[in-house]
């Protein structure tokens, strides 16, 4: 197999990790919404926490994207 092709395949595989980030962010906001609908008065104070959690989860997905970019452009 050519090295270029292997790099692109590797980049594609690395990007699968972003799906995990999608699941994580979806879980966070889904649960936030479920909790907010049960107790709307407490939702306002927890929105910042939800955003932080989403950012942390998304950051891990971004790592896999960076790995993919490294594979394509740098290696």
């Amino acid at each position: 197999m050519e090295a270029e092709a292997a790099k692109l395949i590797g980049a594609g595989i690395a990007c699968i990790g972003m799906g995990g980030a999608g699941i994580g962010v979806g879980t966070i906001f889904g649960n936030f919404l479920a909790g907010a609908l049960r107790n709307p008065s407490a939702a306002q104070g927890q929105f910042t926490n939800a955003l932080i959690g989403a950012a942390l989860a998304e950051g891990l997905g971004i790592f896999s994207l960076v790995v993919a970019l490294l594979l394509i452009f740098v290696v």
Partner: peptide
Amino acid sequence: VSLSLRLFGNMLA
């Protein structure tokens, strides 16, 4: 690492 890569990755992507 995560702090810088998060911002960088989001903007870049």
